[in-house]
């Protein structure tokens, strides 16, 4: 191959590697959050909320399956959705650090859900117009589901925040404790920049601004105080996680690790 042909090929390979990582970030965030919500099944504060959290989990895991399948195709090494979900170790997971945080009480679960719902609303809305047709189709579908999720989480945020003294103090405490992970949502790195340059994803700054406006409005409706911005020390998107992810994967991957390749 001539030197002239090698450079475009190298660029294309770099773009496909960045796309693989980008899709994995979206997929892993949905998968890990879905797994966390699944932990509520049988433990919800009321039957209706138990069902609601299970429904959110189902949608999220469905989105993760579509995204993981695509990631495997982009990578081109024969890994399918199951191989990617059940055979990677924690440092290979690229989910937002927020998604892996433990359920805590119902207020923690609602605040975590609401923060990620608001993030997905912006990310999926932009991706629905992506130059990548496959991602655009997945995002357009996921966006409809996410609007439904946000109605649930913002509704509970208002009910809890503007509720009793107990529900209010617990929800404010959840917000204050989880807010430090929110800086990661829109912290752009070289993967995001490459995606934006290729027209696959939109630049993150405008989405971050829309996210801030929506979050402030929802918090105002919930009569909760917006926490102060905090420095950005979290790197789940780069595979550096809190200790909680390993425990989650230990449970989620148990069967495939104990009996590799086992099928129903």
């Amino acid at each position: 191959m001539s030197a002239g042909a090698a450079a475009p090929a190298r660029r294309e390979r770099a773009l496909s590697e960045a796309l693989f990582r980008y899709v994995l970030r979206l997929a892993d965030t949905s998968l890990v959050l879905g797994q966390r919500l699944g932990e509520w099944v049988g433990h919800g504060p009321a039957l209706e909320e138990d069902l609601a959290l299970a429904n959110l989990a189902l949608d999220l895991i469905g989105q993760a399956r579509l995204l993981l399948t695509y990631a495997g195709e982009v990578e081109g090494e024969g890994r399918d959705e199951d191989a990617l979900a059940f055979s990677r170790d924690a440092p290979e997971f690229l989910n937002l650090t927020l998604a892996e945080q433990p359920n805590g009480d119902f207020a923690h679960t609602i605040v975590r859900q609401w923060l990620i719902d608001c993030w997905q609303l912006e990310i999926y809305a932009d991706l629905a117009a992506s130059a990548d047709e496959r991602l655009a189709a997945i995002a357009a579908k996921a966006l409809k589901e996410t609007r439904y999720h946000h109605r649930f989480s913002s509704g509970w945020l208002a009910r809890l925040g503007d509720g009793t003294a107990e529900s209010r103090s617990r929800t404010q405490a959840a917000l204050d404790s989880l807010w430090r992970f929110s800086a990661e949502l829109f912290a752009a790195d070289e993967v995001d920049e490459r995606m934006a340059a290729a027209g696959i994803a939109a630049p993150l700054a405008p989405a971050a601004e829309r996210w801030r406006i929506r979050a402030a409005a929802d918090l105002q409706a919930a009569t909760l105080a917006l926490p102060a911005p905090q420095p950005y020390p979290w790197h789940g998107k780069r595979g550096v996680h809190t200790e909680h992810l390993g425990h989650l994967l230990g449970e989620m991957q148990h069967l495939q690790r104990a009996y590799p390749g086992v099928r129903w």
């Binding site: 909320e49 069902l51 609601a52 299970a54 429904n55 959110l56 189902l58 109605r151 649930f152």
Partner: peptide, 13 residues
Amino acid sequence: RVSEFGSTPCKAH
């Protein structure tokens, strides 16, 4: 409305 979610993903209660 009792709940926005029901026994299957397509139904509310």
